[in-house]
Write a protein that binds this DNA or RNA. Structure first.
Lengths: 210, 210
DNA sequence: CTTATAGCTTGATATAAGTCAAAATTAACA
DNA sequence: TGTTAATTTTGACTTATATCAAGCTATAAG
């Protein structure tokens, strides 16, 4: 553990809107978010973007870069954030010596795969309101784990960014939020969100007309 | 390399339709496909399915299981296939001793993350015909790498399975295939597919009305 | 070889989500 | 602190894809 600490260095503070890494940047390190909030996104040739995730304190980003020694997405701070750098080749060295660290690294990589595949399920088979309910419940749970309220929190991203993540247009996100509010499942006013009925949202997640 | 060979054992032949592993099965090994064709899919509580990938000879599957010591998807043979088993804890042991093997394993895990994020882009931002063109070009390229024709091959999966992978209904897949055929970009008759114009398909991939 | 079953295509119609537009609200900044 | 720009909401209308249905074609089983 002490040796892992040696490896990790404060990379510094990223102001709202600033970029931790860009697609194409040489891959050298993973990053642990100490405080704050990030989004990762890919852009294809013709300018289309897809937000691939929102990351909060305690989460690791940058794993996309391992495969080709270059990052394949952009990571952008959605609020002022503090980040630690974990040089990857040194992490590999250390994980050869420490089997529990090795195991941990493999689990983190695999967890990212599972997360992505669940988003594929969301994008491939859920309708707008379901996607949004799933998204809100995921945020709720992650805030809860960190000791914050699972039922009352600030959205750190715009409707456009939520839409990009969920495969929807921002107007659809706005309408779906309004509709969940009409249904008394949430209260939403701009970025502040309150979940009034967790179980109702869960039910909404499982609802399919398709 | 010799030591890696020791580790890998023939797991045997999987007949068309048989299951290599199921969601919930204890995770113990990765699998290398020697010959044949698989699909992986996740099923959520209410029975919805999402095909998360199609895997062919030379590819590794099972990485989803590392994170929780249990598989999170099903792997089903789409034709008679031969598989090798790579016991994961022994692979971890060996990769601690052999840095190039360790690096290789990390790249494979990361490549899966990148692949999944590109599917998120497809599902989140492309229209039906574009998704299909992207899919066909991806198959084409993978066949080419293996020394098969990039322009003439058999689809190993049903329209329903293609639809599940691409987030479309089977009728939409069928119509999109017919339309690409009318446009003289492909010839398709049941499962046999011929690409008449690779660059035309690529152009179609980049086309967006949305 | 015959029958049954699963898979595929195509048409008609319905609908969820997208598009366009305008107003309202909030945030940024000079 | 006023002004501008960005974000959000809501409405009216359009469209891509889903749904439903029927007929057709392969493939598998007896």
């Amino acid at each position: 553990m002490a040796r892992l600490d040696d490896l990790i260095t404060r990379k510094g503070v990223y102001r709202h809107g600033s970029i931790l890494y860009r697609s194409g940047d040489k891959f050298q390190a993973l990053y642990a978010i100490r405080t704050g909030f990030f989004k990762t996104q890919i852009l294809n040739e013709d300018g289309r973007e897809q937000v691939t995730g929102f990351q909060m304190a305690g989460e690791i980003i940058g794993m996309d870069g391992i495969s080709s020694d270059a990052h394949t997405c952009d990571a952008v701070a959605l609020e002022d954030s503090e980040v630690c750098e974990i040089p990857f080749s040194r992490l590999e060295d250390l994980s050869r010596e420490l089997p529990p660290l090795q195991r941990h690294l493999h689990r983190i990589l695999s967890r990212e795969i599972v997360r992505d595949q669940n988003i594929m399920l969301l994008l491939g088979s859920m309708r707008a309101e379901e996607r949004l309910a799933t998204f809100l419940l995921n945020l709720s749970q992650r805030f809860a784990v960190r000791g914050y309220s699972p039922t009352s929190f600030q959205l750190r991203m715009t409707r456009h960014e939520i839409g990009s993540y969920l495969g929807l247009k921002l107007e659809t996100v706005s309408r779906a939020l309004s509709h969940l509010q009409e249904s008394k499942l949430i209260n939403v006013r701009n970025r502040s969100l309150e979940i009034l009925c967790l179980s109702g949202l869960q039910a909404c997640m499982g609802k399919r007309t398709r």
